[in-house]
Amino acid sequence: MKKWLMQDSWRHLIGISISLFALFPLYLVVISSFASSGSLQLTSFVPKEISFKNYQLLFNNPAIPYLTWAKNSLVIAGSVAVLSVIIGSASAFAFSRLAFKGRKTGIQLLLLVQMFPAILAISAVYVIMERVYKFAPEIGLGTQPGLLLVYLGGAMGVNIWLLKGFVDSIPAELDEAAKIDGASAVQTFWLIFVPLAAPVLAVVALLSFIGTFNEFILARLFLVDMENRTIAVGLQQFIGGQYSQNWGPFAAGSILASIPIVIIFLSLQKYIVSGLTAGSVKG
């Protein structure tokens, strides 16, 4: 009996201390968001005041269209998540299930491409989208559809690679049975595979959503108009500006932006864990 308690107490000790480590910065953000001073209140660990000034600023100041930014982020990250998973899973399915010449080369090429330090390619992407803007202003530089296209292209490599791992872990018996029934590869994909892999696809979509939501280097170059910006760009402006360090609104905005993601994350936790490991356990 005592031995068990001992064993459990070290478990709790580790759990508690690392939980504190995980929570500490988050706690500070929460207090800062309720402080009115605008600085990152980090010296006192007990909140001195509870002010909603920062939150009000986000919703009442016409110069800070926070809700519009939130909507933009949701639309862009959401579209990237859905589209890249559809397109990516098709490719992953083909890599995993179809036999064709050059399959190995293809997957190796894909792996190589995503290892290229893409940050330098920004210049080239910028020039391409600038030129697209000249003849199709709706999808070029400065537009959300344009950024969406760039994100989709960029997400392709990682997503196909990740999805392929998942697809491999799904038993092939079912779609082989469908094949015997005379279904074509395309039919097998849509009717058998997609419903079967839905939870896994949802996980990849979520990861893709979070990744896009976080992106700000391309976004701040591409989405210049105030009304077009995403949350990451808008929030970075509070503390990344040349002349200002407004931690208060930044903290408030970050918290509001994180809540939905954290909720989705926590509620899908089970799938995420199985999804993350599926790619590896297969081996």
Binding site: N214, Q236, A257, I261, F265
Partner: peptide
């Protein structure tokens, strides 16, 4: 424990 992973890393 998953909070640090779920939070937007920029922030």
């Amino acid at each position: 424990l998953v909070l640090p992973y779920a939070m937007p890393s920029v922030m």
